[in-house]
């Protein structure tokens, strides 16, 4: 088993599949009255969050607690440069406290890679800047697999601000490892110039929808408007938002995903978000199972 999960590139197909299979076993637990496993009793998992993200933090917290780990929440808001101690000093502190795993969310890309140099335990990337969010990709893959029965050969459209999206980066890597075919869609300003050959690029959402099994909408921050990535929220929504007429262009079986939090009315219409096609709430539930599987396997749970 790998020691750290810093990037979806750390996962080969076998490892990723093992995580998804393990997550399915974990999910079976949540139907029981007692949801707890003793697997990580006596182990310490630190949630080191430099960015506010209640949903991701409680998802990891729930995952660790269901495995009986001791959980320490370390909220280190604000940059390590402007105030407070450096990431390295924080790492040494966590090391001294005997952290077996550190789950890190940070606004700087690559912070988990730096952290892994300074702690002996496992490092799990819970989102780093505009780099990656590998457990999100795993829960997305898990959701696709449980809804559609497979990943190999699936056609997945990832729509929106790919340039700044850590969710998109991790999904492109993981989905291509697992045999899915990814097309990224968005205005050219929000698609990186030198995208990997692991994904196709399209600027035309309407053309891509009829041939998609999955359409994953990314959150688009309205701040991007001020920086001239697109002229207005209205124009963005008109060209790249998923509304009801566009939903009808999808094949019958296709699902709609969103990593949340959503801008209803911007990249996704409320009727679409709440439709039976949408897996948005399911994704949240699957997040706990997948993160249980990751912690269990990284920490060699038994």
């Amino acid at each position: 088993m790998i020691k750290h999960l810093r990037s979806a590139a750390d996962l080969d197909a076998d490892t990723a599949t093992l995580i998804l299979d393990t997550a399915a076993e974990m999910a079976a637990l949540s139907g029981r009255e007692v949801k707890k496993l003793p697997a990580l009793r006596g182990r310490t998992v630190v949630n080191l969050f430099y960015e506010d993200s209640t949903r991701t933090r409680i998802s990891f917290e729930a995952a660790a607690k269901r495995l009986s780990a001791d959980v320490i929440n370390f909220s280190a808001k604000g940059s390590s440069v402007s105030k407070g101690e450096s990431l390295k000093d924080t790492a040494l502190t966590l090391q001294a406290m005997g952290a077996d795993a550190v789950v890190i969310r940070h606004s700087a890309s690559g912070a988990p890679h730096r952290l892994a140099n300074w702690v002996e335990g496992s490092v799990v990337n819970a989102g780093d800047g505009t780099h990656e969010h590998p457990t999100q990709a795993l829960l997305d893959a898990y959701t696709m697999r449980s809804r559609l029965g497979r990943l190999d050969g699936l056609k997945v459209a990832i729509v929106g601000d790919v340039l700044h999206s850590r969710v998109a980066r991790s999904n492109i890597l993981l989905l291509s490892t697992l045999g899915a075919r990814v097309t990224v869609v968005g205005p050219p300003t929000l698609i990186p110039l030198d995208l990997t050959d692991k994904a196709q690029v399209s600027y035309d959402l309407d053309a891509v929808l009829p041939d998609s099994d999955v359409v994953m909408m990314l959150r688009v921050q309205t701040e991007r408007m001020q920086d001239s990535y697109f002229p207005s929220a209205r124009e963005y929504s008109r060209r790249y938002g998923l509304d009801v007429p566009r939903l009808r262009k999808l094949p019958e079986h296709a699902i709609v995903m969103h990593p949340g939090p959503m801008n209803r009315g911007m990249e996704i219409a409320p009727e679409v978000a709440d439709s039976p096609r949408s897996t948005i709430v399911e994704q949240v539930a699957n997040g706990v199972s997948v993160r249980m599987a990751v912690l269990y396997l990284l920490l060699g749970g038994k």
């Binding site: 690559g110 800047g129 505009t130």
Partner: peptide, 16 residues
């Protein structure tokens, strides 16, 4: 900007 804009900056999520 953090590094050369290209395939590597895209992969690493660092502003080009």
């Amino acid at each position: 900007a953090q590094m050369h804009e290209g395939e590597v900056s895209t992969r690493l999520g660092l502003t080009g």
